Amino acid sequence: MAKKTRKSRRSARVPAGVSAAIKSGRAMAEDVIAFRTGQTRKRAAAVRRMARAPKPRRAPAPPQIPQRTRALLGTAVSAGVLIAEGDSWFDYPFYDILQMLEDDHLYDVESVAHKGDTVEDMAHSGGQFEEFARRLEKLLRANKVPRAILLSGGGNDIAGDEFAILLNHAASSLPAINDDIVRGLIDVRLRAAYAKIISGLTTIAQRYLGRPIPIVTHGYDYALPDGRGYLGGFWLLPGPWLEPGFRKKGHVDFSKNSAVVVKLIDQFNAMLKDVSATAGFEHVHYLNLRNTLRHDGTYKKDWGNELHPTEEGFKLVSKKFADLIAKL
Rank of each mutant, 00 (worst) to 15 (best):
E120R: 15
E120W: 07
E120F: 01
D121H: 12
D121I: 07
D121V: 10
A123F: 14
A123P: 15
S125A: 13
G126Y: 06
G126E: 10
G126K: 15
G127Q: 14
G127T: 06
F129G: 11
E130P: 04
E131Y: 03
E131S: 07
F132D: 12
A133Y: 02
A133R: 08
A133P: 13
A133D: 14
A133G: 12
R134A: 11
R135S: 12
R135D: 05
R135F: 03
L136W: 07
E137R: 14
E137F: 09
E137L: 12
E137K: 11
K138A: 09
K138E: 08
L139N: 08
L140N: 11
L140K: 14
L140Y: 14
R141D: 13
A142K: 14
N143S: 12
N143E: 14
N143L: 06
K144S: 05
P146S: 05
A148Y: 06
A148S: 03
A148F: 05
L150T: 04
L151Q: 08
L151G: 10
G153R: 15
G153M: 13
G153Q: 10
G154S: 12
G154W: 07
G155A: 12
G155E: 09
A159Y: 15
G160T: 05
G160M: 09
D161V: 10
E162R: 15
F163R: 05
F163M: 10
F163C: 07
L166W: 07
L167C: 08
N168V: 02
N168C: 07
H169R: 13
H169M: 07
A170Q: 15
A170F: 06
A171L: 15
A171D: 15
S172F: 06
S172Q: 13
S172A: 11
S173W: 01
S173V: 02
S173Y: 04
A176N: 06
A176W: 05
I177R: 13
I177N: 03
N178L: 03
N178I: 01
D179Y: 03
D179V: 04
I181D: 08
V182N: 08
V182K: 11
V182A: 10
R183V: 05
L185W: 04
I186D: 01
I186Q: 01
D187Y: 12
D187G: 03
V188K: 08
L190F: 02
L190T: 02
A192I: 00
A193G: 11
Y194P: 03
A195W: 05
K196W: 01
K196S: 12
I198F: 03
I198W: 07
S199R: 06
G200N: 05
G200Y: 00
G200W: 01
L201W: 04
T202E: 00
T202K: 00
T202L: 00
T202W: 00
T202R: 00
T202H: 00
T202G: 01
T203K: 02
I204P: 00
I204F: 04
I204T: 08
I204M: 02
I204E: 00
Q206N: 04
Q206I: 01
R207P: 03
L209Q: 02
L209N: 01
G210R: 04
